[in-house]
Design a protein around this nucleic acid. Structure first.
Lengths: 222, 222
DNA sequence: TCATCTTATCATAGAATTGTGAAAAACTTA
DNA sequence: TAAGTTTTTCACAATTCTATGATAAGATGA
């Protein structure tokens, strides 16, 4: 569980960090919105704690840009309670907020609440003898562990979590490769090829949809 | 969800863009009608927000040309409320309008209303035992999945989403084949033939309208 | 009914899309 | 840095789809 703390005041960052470390969270820091966005692009966080009042780029703008890149939960720190309306009104996908001055206990409680939601989602997908265990980051077919490359794993996970849904190459590129991938569509084809091969008997469950893309399609009864 | 904002005033474009971005819409801009038409030819938008008052080519003319190319929902921005009559009178297939000066909230609300309609349409069409599930990209008749070619699928989808509406061959070519298809009208006939055949019992619901084209016509009670 | 116009059907060439293997490029790790 | 992986790109093969035009069938109206 990795958390990014964004605040221009070092003191506040340190306090938050201390408390989160005690709860065994991994913590990184950013002192302004721009730096935060950089970090978001480079690594995956489970939660971002963000101060509204910051020099240069304010919290609202930062959330907006972050949400555009990755859908990461955001907890806002706001100085005055009047801002709440604004927060809610803007509907930027903010998961929770805490008013300064906040009690560390309260903050930790809210952080735990949000991260718990996520843990639950880091699940296990079972399709007959094909199992993807996202917690262990392992895929097995007939109890045999496959050695997938990171891309293959991500692709399979995306397929699996969109069972029965037709996915265009663009969709796949955007969601598996990232919004900023500017390469050939056909890259998807190649990865689908290797993935099908890796999956052996289960490869057939990735079907081709001509002129559209691909679809993972597994029916429980099969 | 991609939206094209067409207005000659940059300020207005920016304001609209800001608010739409907050709602996670993808936004592109055009500063006049000609540019808008170019963009429409090149990519697919879910909605076009169009100012009536523009130099060179006015909003009315622009809508007309756009609607000729692709059937995309249009939301008009009009400066004076007197223009409404005109808007309605013209019957250009405008989906909604907002008067300047507009409150951003109102605009966003209207945009959401229109796009929601579309999202819903990306769903499931049910006509008795004929079902087109656009998410799974599947057509079933009597629970039996048909294997349609891409053109057949697109054609059927267009027919279905225009239930009860007579469609000329030109309309079909423009909307299913693309505005830039310069081929034989008869092509439609052939595809209608194969489609009817594929649909079996349900083929009869595509009726021929002599001298005009075809119509998908299914009544719930049947 | 017949002449005329419109639509249905068919077979098939060639267009377009996907599958595949191999090589190049980019990235990791020791 | 170099060896080893992983990812991307490319070119061509395999496959599937589409457009077309000729002809048959059907509809229309005098």
């Amino acid at each position: 569980m990795k958390i990014l703390v964004v605040d221009d005041e070092e003191l506040i960052r340190n306090v938050i960090k201390e408390y989160l470390l005690q709860e065994h969270f991994e913590v990184e820091e950013a002192s302004d919105g721009t730096e935060a966005i950089e970090k978001v692009k480079e690594s995956d966080y489970n939660l971002i704690i963000l101060d509204i009042m910051m020099p240069k780029k304010d919290g609202y703008q930062t959330v907006r840009e972050i949400k555009n890149i990755k859908d990461i939960p955001v907890l806002m720190l706001s100085a005055r309670s009047e801002e709440f309306d604004k927060l809610i009104g803007f509907d930027l996908g903010i998961d929770d907020y805490v008013t300064k001055p906040f009690s560390p206990k309260e903050l930790v409680a809210r952080v735990k609440a949000i991260t718990k939601r996520q843990e639950k989602s880091g699940n296990k997908y079972v399709f007959g003898e094909l199992i993807l265990d996202d917690v262990a980051h392992i895929v097995t077919v007939d109890s045999q562990e496959l050695s997938l490359t990171p891309k293959e794993y991500d692709l399979l996970k995306y397929f699996i979590s969109n069972n029965h849904i037709a996915l265009s190459r663009e969709q796949l590129l955007a969601n598996v490769w990232g919004y900023d991938f500017y390469g050939d569509d056909r890259t998807v084809d190649t990865h689908v090829k290797t993935l099908r091969h890796e999956l052996g008997e289960y490869g057939k469950y990735i079907s081709t949809i001509r002129k559209v893309g691909y679809k993972f399609d597994y029916e429980e009864s099969e």
